[in-house]
Design a protein around this nucleic acid. Structure first.
Lengths: 187, 187
DNA sequence: TCGGTTTCCGAACAATGTGTTCAGCAATGA
DNA sequence: TCATTGCTGAACACATTGTTCGGAAACCGA
C-alpha cells in the first residue's frame, strides 16, 4: 500500500520548495520558515514529516545516490560514476552550484562526499583490499579531489566541459591510485 | 605606534574565547553571545571590532597562513608545507578537529583551502605556467585531496602519523601532478 | 456512500540568537 | 593632567527554531 495521498503531496511540496529555494539562495541560506511558506503547508505539518532542514536534504539526495549507483560501472576501469556525474552537474549546473558552491554548506558536501565515498571504496576494495595507502586515506583523497573539482567548476566562471573535468580528474588521480593498488591492472 | 592597550586586550580575549569554544563544540556551534560571555566583554564592544563570528575566524587564521608560508619550501620538490602542516595538525589535533571536522563549517574549510591553494598555485606555476590540466582544476584537485586527508584524519580514530599522511598525500597526488606538469623534472 | 483513521491546519508559545543604539563611565597615552 | 578613545550594559527590533493542541478536513477501504 502506497503512502496516504496527503503525505505524498506534502512531502513533494516540501522537497520542491527546498529545491527552488536552494536555486535562489543556496542551501545554507534557506530557512524552515521559508520552506513552509513556499510549500504552503502548516508549520506543524513540516515537523511532522521532517526533523530538520537537513533531514529534507538527505531525503532529496537519495535521488542522487541512486543516480550514482546506476552509473557506478560506466566505462572502463575505476570511477565510472565520474563522467555521468559531471554531465549531470552540467545539465543541473544551478542546482549543483546551490549544493556545492560557496552558499552550500558542510552538511551538503559531507553527505555527497559520503555517497561518492561508498562507491569509490567498493571499487577500490574489489581491486585490492589492502592497498599501499591505507584504504580510508585513499578513499578520502580521491573523493576530496573529485568534490573539489566539482565545487570549483560549480562556483567558477570557467566553462569546462564534463569531458574535460572527467579527464582532469582521471589524469590527476589515476596514476597515484594505480600505484597504490599495485601491479594487478584493474579492468 | 602600537594599538591602544585596551584594543589589544579586547581582541586577544575574543580570539582566545573563540579558540576555546571551538575546542569544545566546533566552529559552527559557537555563537557570538558565547564568545562575548567567555571573553567577558560587552556586546557592543564585540561589534565594534568585528562584524561577525566569521570575521574573528579570518583574523585568527592569519596565523595559520603565516605558518604555512614559512614552510612553503621545506624539503625537496613540491608541497613543502605538507609535512609541516600535518605535524602542526598532529600537535593541535583538537583544534584542527574543531576547524575541519564535522562540526567545523564551510567557512573554515574554504578559507583554509584558499590559503593552501595560494601556495600550491605559486609552486605549480613556477614549474609550468601552462600545465596539461587547466591550472585552476589542478590546484583545486590537489588542495581538495589534501584537505580531505586532513579532515578525515581529524575526524576519524585512525592514529596515522604525520609522516604517513604526508606519504599518502604525495603518493596519491605526485604522479598525476608530475605528468600534468610535463617532462621537466621539478627540483 | 459511510465512517473510522490519519493528516493537516494555524496560531500561539518559549527559547535563543543577531546586530544596533546610546549615554555615561573608565582607561589610556602624551 | 586631560583630551581622546574605548568599553559598558541594557534595551531594542527582529528573525528563526521547534513544540503544542483542538478542531477541521481529507483519505481509504468496505
Amino acid at each position: 500500500m502506497a503512502l496516504d495521498r496527503r503525505v505524498r503531496r506534502t512531502r513533494f511540496a516540501i522537497h520542491r520548495a527546498l529545491m527552488d529555494l536552494m536555486l535562489e539562495k543556496g542551501y545554507e541560506a534557506v530557512t524552515v520558515t521559508e520552506i513552509i511558506d513556499r510549500a504552503d503547508i502548516g508549520r506543524s505539518t513540516f515537523y511532522a514529516h521532517y526533523t530538520d532542514k537537513r533531514d529534507v536534504l538527505y531525503a532529496s539526495l537519495d535521488e542522487l545516490a541512486g543516480f550514482l549507483r546506476a552509473h557506478r560501472d560506466d566505462g572502463e576501469g575505476l570511477f565510472g560514476f565520474s563522467l555521468a556525474m559531471f554531465e549531470h552537474a552540467h545539465e543541473q549546473r544551478l542546482l549543483i552550484r546551490a549544493l556545492l558552491g560557496r552558499r552550500g554548506g558542510t552538511v551538503v558536501r559531507d553527505r555527497i562526499a559520503y555517497v561518492i565515498g561508498e562507491l569509490v571504496r567498493e571499487q577500490l576494495v574489489a581491486h585490492n583490499p589492502a592497498p599501499a595507502i591505507p584504504l580510508d586515506l585513499l578513499v578520502a583523497g580521491v573523493v576530496g579531489a573529485y568534490m573539489a573539482l566539482l565545487a570549483r567548476w560549480a562556483d567558477g566562471d570557467e566553462p569546462h566541459t564534463p569531458a574535460q573535468l572527467d579527464a582532469a580528474f582521471r589524469q590527476l588521480v589515476t596514476p597515484g591510485v594505480a600505484a597504490a593498488l599495485g601491479p594487478g591492472r584493474p579492468g
